[in-house]
Design a binder for these strands. Sequence first.
DNA 1: CGCAACAGGTTTACGTGTAAACGAGAAGAT
DNA 2: ATCTTCTCGTTTACACGTAAACCTGTTGCG
Lengths: 163, 163
Amino acid sequence: MSTSASLCGMPDPRWLDEREFRAWLGYRRMRLLLDAQIARDLQSDSGLSEADYDVLSALSSRESRRWRLQELADRMLWSKSRLSRHVSRMEERGLVAKEECADDGRGAVIALTDGGMNAIVEAAPGHVESVRSHLIDLLTEEQIEVLGDIAETVLAHLGAEIR
Amino acid sequence: MSTSASLCGMPDPRWLDEREFRAWLGYRRMRLLLDAQIARDLQSDSGLSEADYDVLSALSSRESRRWRLQELADRMLWSKSRLSRHVSRMEERGLVAKEECADDGRGAVIALTDGGMNAIVEAAPGHVESVRSHLIDLLTEEQIEVLGDIAETVLAHLGAEIR
DNA sequence: CGCAACAGGTTTACGTGTAAACGAGAAGAT
DNA sequence: ATCTTCTCGTTTACACGTAAACCTGTTGCG
């Protein structure tokens, strides 16, 4: 008997073999350390958090520099509560502005301010450099390709859009 | 001129090309959704958070079922503050116990209780199944190997131990 | 020994994520 | 038009991570 599961007729689980465990543990540790490092770099050389950067980046991706709150939350895979709170904090720092929505009296439109645009334009080169130096430039072309494939597979299985 | 950086003599950053961007964005989205899904599975079928699971798992990995707080924090790459607080919460739920340290009057030894051992023994099969179904079983052997390689490379660059 | 410097853990203040409750406007049915 | 129901966004209560302050022992040095 290996676990109590055997007592009640459950089949033993298929434990991870060494190779699988290495991948899973590696993924988890990479996630922990890589994200922390990139976040630290971003914070120290631009004063932005990753969340700030993502919001600014999404806003700047549109010609109008504006998004409806809900739409933006969906795109970023954030709850609207989180985005609402985050945007309020960013508004106090002058990075974004909340505007009323012409079509819908309930709606809120999040707009990138000049200050926000400036912030991301200044932050972007350093951020890309950080992502390169801690991840992309360490990998071979094949590894980059496979990482993209893995993410695509996993996300497709979870029913997410890749976009 | 592409950005203001050009005005002050900075070289243009090497932006990510399409393949690189796909890998980076994919990684970020995978991290967001995969972790959330696995955490939800774990919570709903065992009542444990990932953090709980990691603590229990680390404790159970030792014959003595005990770790000094600081050592455990280092191994888990957690701050001692975080571990201290988390362990206090787990103690209230009967999963672990804090003992005094014989060698060092300041020290704390974290011990796995029978309840905690039971909790992880019951949670483990479902958790492995969850990790398999949302990640490992979706990938080819080669992809698993490459994921492990990527993590190893990135962690080595960040100066982390793989262990 | 006695004092200064240090190390192990805990606590505090703060920022931020989540779920649920909420208020206000929109939409649909009669 | 009015009533119900839905949707949008905000707010509230709570959980949790972090950095820094803090307390308490330990260690090293005169």
